[in-house]
């Protein structure tokens, strides 16, 4: 992916800083001074640019290939991860991963979309676009979570469910619908975090949860801005306008009371501080789980149902 246009001045500065650092061996005092000056300028620039990202710019940040992905979170915030595979019906889907793990002492079921981070892994994970098998694996995992009274964490990062012939033939709609129903029937707490892109039905299928959080620059939308523009403006060229109109940023969605909280990203976005991002996400999940523990399954389900029944009434 080419560099994000709005980041160019930052990247130029960061390039100069790296260049200067390589020269410090000459022990020139002016270089140290210049370095400090540039670093301060660079972080000021980051603050000013990142504090007022437009919705269209957030779309780019949310899709940035170097943002931490599902696998990074698993590595960074869980131990004993035990991946579980297959829907017991047809196949395993590498676009939607999941399994058992330990999160800060608790057993959890973890699941989420994995986009991959190079050509080979992107193809393996189908760019994070799941087929029915993925959503049926999610259903299986949620049933197991209910069975063993284990909370569920889902990490959402998908452009959408895969639009393919095979996916349709095996009932993509039914798989998503059942997965939403599984979320609603889950007998343990569920926390979802939109870590990058929350793309439509493919996202809500595993994001119908007791708590839904979004990373600061993540997006969550009923349709991609490009798709929306090509339908309503009859040209994908208007994607930036569509991004504004759709109100897909974390800040807009919190105002609309459709999510429960925003998780701050490091200065300059999650792609500039993977570890810190993962730590922040883990802290929020822990807080959410703490609030929901201990739980009474019937009451938990009732509250979750009421939460979704009310959406659109106020």
């Amino acid at each position: 992916m080419p560099a994000m246009e709005f980041e160019k001045p930052i990247l130029e500065l960061e390039g100069k800083i790296t260049e200067l650092r390589n020269m410090t061996s000459t022990r020139d005092f002016n270089i140290a001074e210049e370095l400090a000056r540039l670093e301060s300028k660079s972080s000021k620039l980051l603050v000013s640019i990142y504090s007022k990202l437009s919705p269209a710019q957030k779309v780019q940040v949310a899709r940035h290939p170097e943002r931490p992905h599902f696998t990074d979170y698993v590595r960074g915030m869980l131990t004993d991860f035990t991946p579980l595979a297959g829907d017991r019906l047809f196949a395993d889907d590498d676009a939607l991963l999941g399994g058992l793990a330990r999160f800060r002492g608790r057993s959890v079921v973890i699941m989420g979309h994995e986009k991959g981070n190079d050509t080979e892994t992107r193809i393996k994970h189908n760019f994070g676009m799941a087929r029915p098998e993925g959503y049926r694996k999610a259903q299986r995992l949620m049933e197991m979570a209910s069975q063993f009274q284990i909370p569920v964490i889902s990490l959402v990062d998908t452009a959408g469910a895969y639009p393919g012939v095979d996916a349709e033939a095996r009932g993509q709609s039914e798989a998503i619908a059942q997965s939403i129903d599984s979320c609603l029937r889950l007998r343990t707490p569920m926390i979802s975090v939109i870590i990058g892109e929350g793309g439509s039905g493919g996202a809500i299928a595993i994001a119908t949860a007791d708590r839904v959080y979004m990373l600061e620059h993540a997006i969550y939308s009923v349709i991609s801005p490009e798709g929306c523009a090509s339908i309503l403006w009859r040209s994908a060229q208007h994607a930036d306008e569509a991004a504004v109109a759709l109100k897909l940023t974390a800040q807009d969605l919190l105002n609309l009371k459709l999510i429960d909280g925003i998780i701050e990203e490091p200065l300059g976005g999650a792609h500039r501080g993977k570890d810190m991002t993962i730590e922040m996400v883990a802290n929020q999940i822990e807080k959410g789980l703490h609030d929901l523990t201990p739980w009474d399954s019937d009451r938990l389900i009732k509250k979750r149902q009421q939460k979704y029944l009310a959406m659109g009434r106020t």
């Binding site: 939403i180 129903d181 996202a203 809500i204 969550y220 009923v222 309503l232 029944l309 959406m311 659109g312």
Partner: peptide, 23 residues
């Protein structure tokens, strides 16, 4: 499908209607 002019609110009608038919 969903009415995109209502943004994410329209997506939320998917779980909402699912709750309804579950009842």
């Amino acid at each position: 499908g969903a009415r995109m002019q209502e943004g994410l609110l329209s997506l939320m009608q998917m779980p909402r209607t699912t709750v309804a038919v579950r009842m």
